[in-house]
């Protein structure tokens, strides 16, 4: 019946890697198979009865497959599976654990922009956008996905090395009573309380307060 004899070692470590809900399936090649292995990918919505093949990842030789499009509804959970083929032989289908885009994604740091006056710094924070199908697609901020999203902001006085931390919910922060003519460096992190998620800290954005005109 042309049924392939599946004795090829299995793909290993099949898992989703997700950043800002860009959900990419990754795996490692079967042990000891070298070059020439091809793969097929399928996925399923948890609770729904069927596996769906991913045509763009049929007979591929790379070890990843972008399933962002297929897993973009973050109110659902998913499984994905990979099968390897080599010289007429195949492996078993190897599955991920249950993938929940809402809790299993990583979040990028926020964008930070700063401006200054003589004695204050104004900081504007922008949460990253959820992955979208195409640049023209509708932009959805992660703020809309995670209503409890907050920003942790660090402000460092470069002269005194004194550092302050702030935790804010809205996206603007004004830090008053600063020293004129002094450099300050700002970096920020996203923190979601439930589900518990946080990004790394952004790069530092440094700016100097204006010199005191009266001095």
């Amino acid at each position: 019946s042309g049924e392939l004899y599946c004795s090829l070692p299995n793909p290993r470590n099949v898992h989703f890697e997700s950043i800002n809900m860009r959900n990419v399936l990754h795996w490692s090649a079967p042990e000891g198979t070298g070059d020439g292995v091809l793969y097929r990918v399928k996925y399923s919505v948890y609770g729904v009865g069927k596996w769906i093949r991913k045509p763009e990842c049929k007979n591929i030789n790379r070890t990843w497959c972008d399933l962002s499009n297929e897993t973009s509804d973050y109110e659902e959970q998913y499984y994905a599976s990979v099968k390897a083929f080599l010289n007429g032989m195949c492996s078993d289908w190897m599955e991920t654990t249950r993938f929940n885009p809402l809790t299993d994604t990583k979040i990028d740091p926020p964008m930070v922009s700063v401006s200054s006056t003589e004695k204050s710094i104004s900081i504007i924070l922008t949460a990253p956008e959820k992955w979208k199908r195409s640049p023209e697609g509708e932009s959805v901020s992660l703020l809309q996905v995670y209503p409890g999203l907050q920003y942790n902001v660090s402000v460092l006085n470069k002269k005194t090395k004194k550092r302050w931390f702030f935790s804010v919910s809205n996206n603007t922060l004004v830090v008053p009573w600063l020293e004129p003519g002094t450099a300050y460096c700002v970096s920020a992190q996203i923190h979601v309380t439930t589900p518990l998620l946080h990004s790394g800290f952004s790069e530092e954005h440094c700016i100097a307060t204006l010199k005191d005109k009266t001095a």
């Binding site: 399923s44 948890y46 609770g47 729904v48 009865g49 959970q77 654990t97 809790t103 518990l196």
Partner: peptide, 21 residues
């Protein structure tokens, strides 16, 4: 979160959900 992977691994039924479908 501490036991999610352990518990979900004990549930082999992909095609049925109690709460979501």
């Amino acid at each position: 979160t501490a036991i999610k992977a352990n518990i979900q691994a004990r549930d082999p039924i992909r095609t049925l959900s109690i709460l979501s479908h």
